[in-house]
Amino acid sequence: MSGHLAPYLIISAGLFSLGLFGALTRRNAVAVLMGIELMLNAANLNLIAFNRFLGPGGASTVNGMPVDGSFTPLLAGHAFAVVVITIAAAEAAVGLAIILTIYKNARTINVDEINWMRW
């Protein structure tokens, strides 16, 4: 079971959908942010899993094995994941700073009350 790709993808899809549900429905802005973090984690899990099963080396492999013994495997998925983690950290910092600023100005962080940008 853990030797196949599909179970990882299903878990990732589940994690993504849960995060999406949270992001779409929670009233509290911090909770929305938590949902977004879950979605980012799901994306990361996908990247790592694809790297393990479909890489490394991409087209130069047959069933994941190298055609010849002398190649430098590219850890593209891992590199992507590092970048995504960086972005997630930056997003969390800036997002929470925005939430704090909104809280200072409006004394609320309920997203349905933050609707000044409407008709």
């Binding site: 779409l24 997203v111 609707n115 409407r118 008709w119």
Partner: peptide, 17 residues
């Protein structure tokens, strides 16, 4: 049509998805 612009970001996200 202007009523579609509710100002609520989650409405927009639902439509996007």
């Amino acid at each position: 049509l202007r009523q579609l612009q509710t100002g609520r970001v989650q409405n927009y996200a639902v439509v996007l998805y």
